[in-house]
């Protein structure tokens, strides 16, 4: 069985700072990581491979430095890594990204065998759109299984798969067919510690690097800015509220007195609450 996992190299969001004067993102020196949601997808792919046999190919689209993320994925035990990199991809929105990735996945199919499952994380932490997975599924005409919390079973001979999918207010148990695209929910199995053997192999491995043409993309106008129907027109910092919070003076008061003053203030702002909390609260 052949499994493709799409990953993305993202800035470590905990380290992002906004320049206080220019309101621009200060990217310099921000470390990059594999999008944390993608690691749940990768681990699930590795588990499926370990159980059913086959290969896991990791794929990313990004600048040349995204090779680091692929090499990291190899240390976890992925068998092959493909980097899709081309300046024509710059400025891609989710529609253009799903186009490029789906073309690359088709090319991976031609070169290394048609994938049975394509995995992505449920979303990225830098874009948070959750749109690229469904976009790939639609373009490749794969069954789309999003927010999967568990792969209950895979019957390779019958080409069927049963998954538990997070939905509003509960869990859907879905039975479907291969090939499919799965976006994996967080909180499933954490990524394994790669073996020493995998680490050595990762260091030696050739990363497959494709530009647009090598990925089989003929129509470059579907890529990058030109292929993106959405345009970011303005980036700005949120407007602060007109006034800062009214501070309750705490000097020379007991905690109890301050709390009492706060409750008075709450009920002054929201008089209706005083009665409602009295009748609904369990105090």
């Amino acid at each position: 069985m052949h499994i493709v996992v799409c990953i993305k190299q993202v800035p470590d969001s905990a380290q992002i700072r906004v320049h206080p004067v220019t309101n621009t993102i200060m990217r310099q020196g921000v470390p990059t990581i594999i999008n944390p949601y993608d690691l749940f997808a990768l681990e699930e792919a590795l588990k499926v491979r370990d159980y059913h046999g086959g290969e896991v190919t990791v794929l990313t689209m990004g600048p040349p430095m995204a090779e680091d993320a692929l090499r990291k994925a190899l240390t976890y035990g992925a068998d092959r890594a493909v980097l899709l990199t081309d300046r024509h991809f710059a400025g891609s929105d989710t529609l253009a990204t799903s186009f490029a990735l789906s073309q690359a996945i088709a090319q991976i199919g031609n070169s290394f065998g048609t994938p049975d499952i394509v995995f992505t994380g449920k979303q990225t932490i830098d874009g948070d759109t959750a749109q690229v997975g469904p976009g790939i599924a639609k373009r490749l005409n794969l069954v789309q299984l999003t927010y999967v919390a568990k792969i209950a079973s895979i019957e390779l001979s019958a080409r069927t798969i049963t998954v538990e999918r997070r939905s509003e207010g509960g869990t859907q148990v879905l039975k479907s067919e291969l090939p499919c695209l799965i976006t994996m929910l967080e909180g499933t199995a954490s990524i394994r510690r790669g073996s020493l053997e995998d680490a050595l192999r990762a260091a030696r491995s050739e990363i497959v690097k494709w530009n647009a043409a090598e990925a089989g993309i003929e129509d470059i106008t579907k890529c990058g800015l030109r292929g993106s129907p959405t345009v970011v027109k303005r980036v700005f910092a949120p407007t602060p509220r007109a006034e800062k919070a009214a501070q309750i003076d705490t000097t020379e008061k007991t905690v109890r007195d301050v709390a009492d003053e706060l409750v008075t203030s709450i009920f002054t702002h929201q008089p209706a609450l005083e009665h409602e909390l009295s009748s609904t609260g369990s105090a």
Partner: peptide
């Protein structure tokens, strides 16, 4: 929602139009 995001991504890709999330 999980439903809305699942559906919106497929519909926007089918229609080849722009979709802005959240």
């Amino acid at each position: 929602t999980t439903l809305g995001r699942d559906l919106a991504g497929s519909v926007a890709t089918t229609l080849l139009t722009g979709l802005t999330a959240d």
